[in-house]
Design a protein around this nucleic acid. Structure first.
Lengths: 147, 147
DNA sequence: TCCATTTATATGCAATTGCATCTAGTGTGT
DNA sequence: ACACACTAGATGCAATTGCATATAAATGGA
């Protein structure tokens, strides 16, 4: 139980502030354009990348570090809107397989330009290319599967 | 509207993931000890640092990048618990002055060891001292008052 | 095979958040 | 002093989150 150094505490505090600031920028822009919240995009992208058979909810959960009950309901909403299709898993009776629909793909594509501009405004505009790389590398260490 | 580079997008994505992971660690530990959520600590600390006359809600809001309505209600809860005292602002009829109470100070002190250990686990354990400094510096750029 | 444990996902209910808007002061220009 | 735009803060209501727990199927033994 070593106590954190001053710079670790500062890093944590700034992680919170930076995240809050950037997230607010992104969510506000999406909303202003009448688009769904960020999490929808993230799930759709993950599913699109996941490829053919689809992904299990628990895989999404691990990849995106979402709380299980939040993901469950997020999928409900995505399904209601017709962006995602749930089918029973062939090999696991408890589970399901998630697939992005054509409508879901279209929505993801539609969101991207707005999201991209927001990311640039919230993050890119503040960093040089090399700073962005360094930041990405350091942040990855905070949730690396294993240290 | 330049599009963000690949590394900027990665930095943003990882900012989200890292924040989610670290926050979950911190909040879980606080909860496990029966302590109030993180935001309470942050407000109490800010008020304690703010010193004698106290702070106006809008000052807190700017410092912590909180949404106005969230802060308003967070203060309600803190006041209900007796951790914070609201008094009418002398020089601005619309406003109020917030002060931390003795009980609030005591709670802040009580939270700190748990919070500190959580920060170390969530952040410090993953970074060298120099990495922590670099990370803190880079994150600060993302919400700098002016670029 | 049977039982206990664990894993995958859902859900009722309370607390919090977000949105939109409201009220009440402030400040400025005339 | 008046009209108007702006700032500080609160709040009703709907949506989301968090918590605790439920259900059902898989898994690992004995």
């Amino acid at each position: 139980m070593t106590s954190p150094s001053e710079s670790v505490v500062r890093a944590w505090t700034r992680l919170e502030r930076a995240h809050r600031a950037a997230l607010a920028t992104v969510e506000n822009r999406l909303k202003k354009e009448g688009l769904p919240p960020l999490a929808w995009y993230d799930v759709l992208l993950e599913l699109e990348r996941g490829g053919a058979p689809g992904l299990r909810p628990f895989e999404l959960q691990k990849a995106m570090l979402f709380a299980q009950y939040n993901l469950s309901r997020l999928i409900d909403r995505l399904e209601t809107q017709g962006y995602v299709a749930r089918t029973a898993s062939a090999d696991d009776g408890r589970g399901q397989m998630l697939a992005i629909t054509a409508k879901g793909r279209a929505m993801r594509k539609k969101i991207w330009p707005v999201y991209a501009a927001a990311i640039e405004a919230a993050v890119g505009a503040h960093l040089s290319p090399s700073e962005a790389r360094t930041l990405a590398d350091l942040l990855a260490k905070l949730y690396a599967p294993r240290s």
